[in-house]
Lab assay of single mutants.
Amino acid sequence: QVATSTVRILGMTCQSCVKSIEDRISNLKGIISMKVSLEQGSATVKYVPSVVCLQQVCHQIGDMGFEASIAE
């Protein structure tokens, strides 16, 4: 089973930030795809909930120095 959710990301300033986040999160087990939008300050994450949760994704992004939260 696959889920798609949006994560809000604060602190991104350039495409390099976007690429860094996409590269790191895409390597997590259970992540199918991730598309980060600098303009919208968010990311669309396609993932397998039984393998990885959005809290883990937000935590990983937080470790990179950005502020991440699950969009309502």
Rank of each mutant, 00 (worst) to 15 (best):
R8L: 10
S16N: 12
S69D: 06
Q56D: 14
V18Y: 03
P49Q: 07
K46L: 11
V7C: 14
S50E: 11
I61W: 03
G11R: 04
Q15V: 10
I32F: 05
G65T: 03
C17L: 05
Q60F: 15
E39R: 09
Q15E: 12
Q55R: 09
L28M: 14
I31F: 03
A71C: 11
V52W: 03
M64S: 01
T44P: 02
T44A: 10
G62W: 15
Q60S: 11
S20T: 13
I61Q: 03
R8I: 14
C17W: 05
E72F: 10
T44K: 11
T4L: 11
C17M: 05
I9W: 04
Q56N: 11
C53K: 13
C53D: 13
V2I: 11
M34D: 00
S5N: 09
E67V: 10
M12Q: 02
Q40S: 14
S33F: 08
Q15G: 13
C17E: 14
L38Q: 03
Q1D: 15
G11N: 05
I32G: 00
Q15C: 05
I21T: 00
V52M: 07
G30D: 01
L28T: 06
S16F: 07
E22K: 05
E39Q: 13
V18S: 12
S26Q: 09
G30C: 07
R8P: 05
L38P: 01
E67S: 14
G11W: 05
Q15K: 11
N27T: 11
E39V: 10
M12L: 06
I31L: 02
D63W: 09
E72S: 12
C53N: 14
E39I: 11
I21E: 02
V2Q: 07
T4N: 06
S37E: 06
V52Y: 02
G30W: 06
R8W: 14
E72K: 07
G62T: 15
R8M: 11
T44Q: 09
Y47F: 08
G41H: 14
L28A: 03
S16M: 13
G41T: 06
I61R: 03
S69L: 08
R8E: 09
I25L: 07
G11T: 03
M34P: 00
L54I: 14
S20G: 05
S50K: 09
K19I: 09
Q56C: 09
R8D: 09
S16I: 14
I32V: 12
G65F: 05
A43L: 06
L54R: 01
V36T: 03
V48S: 12
T6W: 12
Y47S: 00
V7L: 15
S69G: 06
V57S: 01
S69W: 14
I31Q: 00
G41A: 14
R8G: 08
F66D: 02
Y47D: 01
Q60P: 02
V36K: 00
D23Q: 11
Q55W: 14
E67W: 12
C17F: 04
V57G: 02
I32A: 00
Q1P: 14
Q56S: 09
V18C: 03
C14N: 06
L10P: 04
S5L: 07
C14F: 04
L28H: 03
M34L: 10
S33D: 08
I31M: 03
Q40E: 11
M64L: 14
L10C: 06
D63R: 15
S37F: 13
S20C: 06
I70Q: 05
M12G: 00
C17S: 04
C58M: 13
D63F: 10
G65H: 03
L28R: 02
E22C: 05
M12A: 00
I25E: 00
I61M: 04
S37I: 06
D63E: 15
S37D: 11
I9K: 00
A3K: 14
M64N: 03
T13N: 05
S37K: 05
M64F: 04
S50D: 10
M12K: 03
L38D: 00
V45I: 11
C58E: 09
Q56M: 10
I9A: 00
Q1R: 08
A3T: 12
Q60R: 08
Q55K: 13
M12D: 00
I9Q: 00
I32N: 01
K35Y: 07
G41R: 14
Q40K: 14
I21S: 01
D23R: 13
K29D: 12
G30V: 07
S26E: 07
Q56G: 04
S42V: 11
A3W: 14
I70A: 08
L38S: 01
Q1W: 12
S50T: 12
T44F: 12
C14L: 03
V18A: 15
I61L: 10
V48Q: 13
S33I: 05
D63P: 03
V57H: 02
T6N: 09
E67T: 11
K46A: 09
Q15D: 12
D23E: 12
D63C: 07
V57M: 03
A71V: 14
H59E: 15
S50Y: 09
T13C: 05
D63N: 12
V48C: 08
L54M: 09
I70W: 07
S26T: 11
Y47K: 00
C53F: 07
G62H: 14
Q55L: 13
I70L: 10
G41K: 12
V45A: 02
E67P: 10
S42G: 06
I21N: 01
V7E: 02
V36E: 00
I25Q: 00
V7R: 00
V45K: 02
T6P: 04
Q40N: 12
Q56K: 09
G62L: 11
V52F: 04
K46T: 15
A43Q: 01
K19D: 11
K19M: 09
C17T: 04
T4K: 08
A3L: 11
V51G: 01
T4W: 10
C17N: 06
V51C: 04
P49Y: 06
C58Y: 09
S16W: 05
L10Y: 13
V7G: 02
V2D: 06
K35T: 11
T44D: 06
K19Q: 12
Y47P: 00
I21A: 02
T13D: 05
E72H: 14
S42T: 12
L28N: 03
V51W: 06
K19Y: 08
I31E: 00
K19C: 04
I31A: 00
L28V: 08
V57N: 01
K35W: 07
L10W: 14
V18D: 01
V2N: 05
H59P: 02
L10Q: 11
R24V: 09
E67L: 11
S42L: 15
E72Q: 12
G41N: 12
V45W: 03
A68W: 08
N27G: 14
S16Y: 06
Q40D: 08
Q55Y: 11
L10K: 13
L54G: 01
T6E: 11
V51S: 05
S20P: 03
I25C: 05
G11M: 05
G41L: 10
G41S: 13
I61Y: 04
G11A: 03
H59L: 15
S37T: 07
S50V: 05
A68E: 02
S26F: 05
S26L: 10
P49M: 06
S69E: 09
D23M: 10
T13S: 09
G30P: 04
V51Q: 11
K29V: 13
M34C: 11
V57Q: 01
I61N: 02
I32R: 04
S16Q: 11
D23G: 10
H59W: 14
A68T: 09
S42K: 14
A3E: 12
Q56I: 09
G62I: 15
E39D: 11
S37Q: 07
K29L: 12
T6A: 06
T44L: 13
V36P: 00
N27L: 11
V51H: 05
E22N: 05
R24Q: 12
M64I: 07
V7P: 00
L38V: 03
C58F: 13
A71Y: 13
